Amino acid sequence: MNILDDLKLQYKLGGVAHRLIYWNVACFLISLIFFYGFQTGSFSYPSWVALSTNPADFIFKPWTFLTYAFFHEGFWHLAFNMMVLNFASQLFLTFFTQKQFLGLYVLSAVFAGIVFVASYYFMNISTAIVGASAAIMAILVAVTTYQPLMQVRLLLIGNVKLWHITAVILILDLMQFRTENMGGHISHLAGAFFGFVYIKALQNGSDISVVITRIIDLFANSFRKSPSTPFKKVHKNYSKPVEKRASRIVTKDKVQQQIDEILDKISQSGYDSLTKEEKDFLFKSGK
């Protein structure tokens, strides 16, 4: 029970990156229950979860351009992706906001999915893809484009420049481009390209991630209650007495101050020293 409470606390206090890791792990656990074949030893994802190159699937199930980025083919596939996501997110969030992180993650996943589907459609190959690698590559390449010379300390290696790490990962993708997982590597490179374009656009004053922020804000505002109207009546009833009371107090203070001045003059120089206006004022105020 303590472990569960700790996980809940970390989820609440953690940022968007930690929550994405939780969502990926949760989706993997769900896939073990519903999509894993213990006899075959592999996953069999339905067309409403994985992104398929079959037009009949992705046209009528457009949400798969995003859902595919939350499921994985195996434990090590998940573990490596989450390790790189944790690493890249810490660097990215050093310079950018949580909203920019989420926006880039979602948009890069969709962009990489479109490139994957288009590539295989023109090659006349029918297949499907799952995995968060493309979105993670976008995060890593984005922060590398922004700060390529950042020093990163790696276990057993020491300090290396960030662009060295990113270059090694990209080279490995290119070396495996003609393997069985060609579609995965196409999406990786597409995600990397999107991360590069995102930073260049941001440096030119255009933040592409605001598209996702506005969509989220639109849904969030639709569930908020509009302020109730009775507050207007309270404001009106409260403001009028205050204004009147304030004006009377000010008037009274001015009259009293003038009377006090006249009385001081009488005490010092006598009643005959008063002017006609002062005598008339004192006479009227005494009524």
Score class of each variant (00 low, 15 high):
I169F: 13
I169L: 13
I169S: 00
D173I: 09
D173V: 02
M175L: 15
Q176P: 01
R178K: 12
R178V: 04
E180V: 12
E180A: 12
E180R: 12
E180I: 14
N181F: 10
N181Q: 10
N181V: 00
N181L: 08
M182V: 05
G183M: 05
H185K: 13
H188V: 06
H188T: 06
L189D: 04
L189A: 11
L189Y: 08
G191C: 04
G191R: 05
F193K: 00
F194S: 01
F194N: 07
G195S: 05
F196Y: 15
F196S: 06
F196T: 12
F196N: 04
V197N: 06
V197I: 13
Y198L: 02
I199H: 00
I199K: 01
K200E: 13
A201S: 15
A201D: 14
L202K: 13
Q203S: 11
Q203K: 14
Q203I: 04
N204D: 14
G205M: 04
S206T: 14
S206Y: 15
S206V: 15
D207W: 02
D207M: 00
I208E: 02
S209D: 05
V210L: 11
V210M: 07
V211W: 12
I212N: 04
R214Q: 15
R214A: 08
R214D: 14
I215P: 04
I215R: 04
I215Y: 11
